Computed example of a mutant assay.
Amino acid sequence: MTNEDFIRTHLLPSASDIARIRRIIRSNSEPPPDIAQALNNIDSEIARYDAEIARGLGDLPSLKQARESLQSYHDDCLSLLSPVRRLPLEILTEIFALR
């Protein structure tokens, strides 16, 4: 399996995926109901990239870049599950108004 095959056969977030998640992060919207499953899938993909990098197969810079992209997307998705996002907007407004 070449590096190009590996990258093509595993999911990388598209620009629209990244934009969608970042839009939700900036809003006070509920996270998508399937976010936990998405995080599991991303974790699996990151592990696959780590394995390819460790074996030294393929184009190492491309694999590292793809892995970093997945990690960034994972971190964005994970922030959607942050406990502070469950606080009502009114409470957050009061907290920051007191500063």
Rank of each mutant, 00 (worst) to 15 (best):
L57D: 14
D59Y: 02
P32V: 05
D50S: 12
R86P: 05
L12V: 11
A66M: 04
A15C: 00
E45V: 06
P31M: 02
R85I: 03
P61E: 06
L89V: 01
D76K: 02
R86K: 08
L98V: 04
L11I: 11
R48G: 07
L81S: 10
S29N: 11
L89R: 04
P33V: 00
N28Q: 10
N41E: 12
D59G: 04
E45R: 01
R99Q: 09
L87K: 01
E68H: 06
L81R: 13
F96K: 10
L11E: 04
R48A: 05
M1L: 15
S14Y: 08
G58F: 10
H10F: 00
L70F: 11
S62G: 08
T9G: 04
S14I: 13
D75L: 13
L63K: 02
R67Y: 05
L92N: 03
R8L: 09
S82P: 05
M1V: 08
H74L: 09
A51H: 09
H74F: 15
F96W: 09
S29I: 07
R67L: 06
P13V: 12
E52S: 09
E68I: 04
R23L: 11
R26S: 14
T9Q: 11
D5A: 11
C77T: 04
S29A: 15
E94D: 03
Y49W: 09
Q71P: 07
D17Y: 07
S44T: 09
E4Y: 02
R48V: 00
P32H: 00
S29D: 10
I53E: 07
C77A: 08
N3L: 13
S16L: 13
R20T: 10
Y73M: 04
F96Y: 13
S44G: 15
L81K: 11
L39I: 14
T2C: 14
A38G: 13
I7Q: 00
I42F: 00
I24T: 15
D43G: 14
A47H: 03
I24Y: 07
A38N: 14
E52P: 08
A51N: 12
L63R: 07
G56I: 06
N41C: 10
L81M: 13
E52K: 14
A54L: 14
L60F: 04
L92V: 10
Y49D: 03
T2E: 06
A47G: 13
N28K: 06
P88I: 05
S27W: 11
R23C: 06
A54R: 09
Q65C: 00
R26H: 11
S72D: 09
S72L: 05
I7P: 02
S82T: 12
T93R: 11
I18A: 12
F96P: 03
R26W: 08
N40Y: 00
I53G: 03
A19L: 11
P61N: 14
G58M: 10
I21L: 03
D50H: 03
R8Y: 01
T2Y: 05
